[in-house]
C-alpha cells in the first residue's frame, strides 16, 4: 500500500493565480483509508470543512503552523550549516570559474528557513542571489514576511523552481525528494542539467530501518501538530534509497553525482539526513578541497569503498 502524507492531499492551488482549489474532505479521507492509514483518517476527519470541502483558511493556518514547527526541527538538525558546508566550496569554485551571476534556488522551499538562514549569515557572499521557490502561496507569503521582518536579502516566488526564467547556479532542496515518486526523480534531476547550472544539493531523509523510529521520536518530542507528527514518520517510511537516488541523479548527464555521508558509509544515526549532490566535473576538485577530510564522505555510484572523488573519479574539467 502507498505511504501517503496528509500535507500532499489537503492543499491544491491554481498554478496561474495561486487561488485555492476546492479539496473534498471525503475524497482525502477515502484515499487515506484506501492506503490503510486510519491514524491519518482521524486527523483529517477533525479538520474543519464546509459544504464537503476543507476550509481553505484553516488549511492555510495549519500549513504555516506545521512548517514553522518543521523549521525548528530543521534548525536542531542544523540543516542550514549542512548546506553551507557543501555550498561554500561549490560557490567559491563557481565564482573562480567565472560563472555568474551566482544564484541559488531552493526548490519546494516551504517557508524556507535554509535560504533565510544562509542570507542571515552571509556565509556564501553578498554576490550570491538567494531565491526560494514554492507552489503553496501561503508559504511563499510567510517566507516573504519573515525575510522582510529581518531585512534579509533573499526572495521567494510562487513558481516551479525548474521553470524559472533566471537559471540557478545551484539548485538545493531540503526534505523534498521523498515527495516525488521514484519514477519522476530522473526527470527532476535531468531538468537541472541546464547549461547555466553548476550543480545541485538535495538533502532528504536517509532511508534506513532506523529512520521511521528516529522520525517518530523527533516529531513526537518537537512537534505539536498531529499532521506534522504523522507526516514526519510517513516521510521516513517513503524516503528513497541511496541506489534509487544515485541512479535517478545520473540523469543529469553533464554532472558527476554523489551522496554525502550516506548511512552505509557513516554512523547510520548521524546520517538521518543526507544529500544527493550533482556537480559539473570541473568543480569536483574544488569541492573535495573545500571539504578537506570530510571529502571521504562523498560516495559515487560506482564507489566500492575507496575514497570517492579521488584519482580515477574524473575530476578534470
Amino acid at each position: 500500500m502507498p505511504v501517503l502524507e496528509i500535507s500532499d492531499l489537503i492543499g491544491a492551488w491554481d498554478p496561474d493565480t495561486g487561488a485555492h482549489l476546492p479539496v473534498g474532505k471525503d475524497e482525502v479521507v477515502a484515499r487515506l483509508r484506501a492506503a490503510g492509514d486510519h491514524h491519518a483518517v482521524r486527523i483529517v476527519e477533525r479538520m474543519p470543512a464546509s459544504g464537503g470541502f476543507l476550509e481553505p483558511e484553516a488549511v492555510d493556518r495549519l500549513f504555516v503552523r506545521v512548517h514553522t514547527e518543521l523549521q525548528w526541527l530543521g534548525e536542531e538538525l542544523r540543516m542550514a550549516e549542512r548546506f553551507a558546508e557543501l555550498l561554500r566550496p561549490l560557490v567559491t569554485a563557481a565564482r573562480r570559474a567565472g560563472r555568474g551571476p551566482l544564484r541559488i534556488v531552493d526548490v519546494g522551499c516551504g517557508i524556507d528557513p535554509v535560504t533565510r538562514a544562509l542570507a542571515a549569515s552571509g556565509t556564501l557572499g553578498r554576490d550570491v542571489e538567494l531565491i526560494g521557490a514554492e507552489l503553496n502561496p501561503v508559504l511563499v507569503a510567510e517566507a516573504t514576511r519573515l525575510a522582510e521582518e529581518e531585512r534579509l536579502t533573499c526572495r521567494f516566488v510562487r513558481r516551479n523552481a525548474l521553470t524559472l526564467a533566471e537559471p540557478a547556479t545551484f539548485y538545493i532542496s531540503s526534505g523534498l525528494l521523498h515527495h516525488l515518486p521514484a519514477a519522476s526523480l530522473a526527470g527532476f534531476f535531468g531538468a537541472q542539467d541546464r547549461s547555466d547550472t553548476a550543480g545541485f544539493v538535495h538533502y532528504d531523509i536517509a532511508a534506513s530501518r532506523l529512520a521511521p523510529l528516529g522520525a517518530w521520536v523527533l516529531h513526537r518530542a518537537r512537534m505539536r501538530e498531529p499532521l506534522g507528527r504523522h507526516d514526519g514518520v510517513a516521510s521516513a517510511r517513503r524516503a528513497h534509497g541511496d541506489a534509487v537516488l544515485l541512479d535517478a541523479a545520473s540523469s543529469a548527464e553533464g554532472m558527476r553525482v554523489f551522496l554525502f555521508t550516506p548511512p552505509r558509509h557513516a554512523n547510520p544515526c548521524c546520517a538521518a539526513m543526507r544529500p544527493v549532490i550533482g556537480v559539473r566535473p570541473g568543480l569536483i576538485e574544488a569541492l573535495r578541497r573545500g571539504l578537506g577530510r570530510r571529502a571521504r564522505g562523498l560516495v559515487g555510484p560506482s564507489d566500492t569503498g575507496q575514497e570517492p572523488g579521488g584519482a580515477g573519479e574524473g575530476t578534470g574539467g
Partner: peptide, 11 residues
Amino acid sequence: PMREGALMVVV
C-alpha cells in the same frame, strides 16, 4: 561537531 551534535537530538 555538527552531525554528532544533531544526533544528540535523536538519541
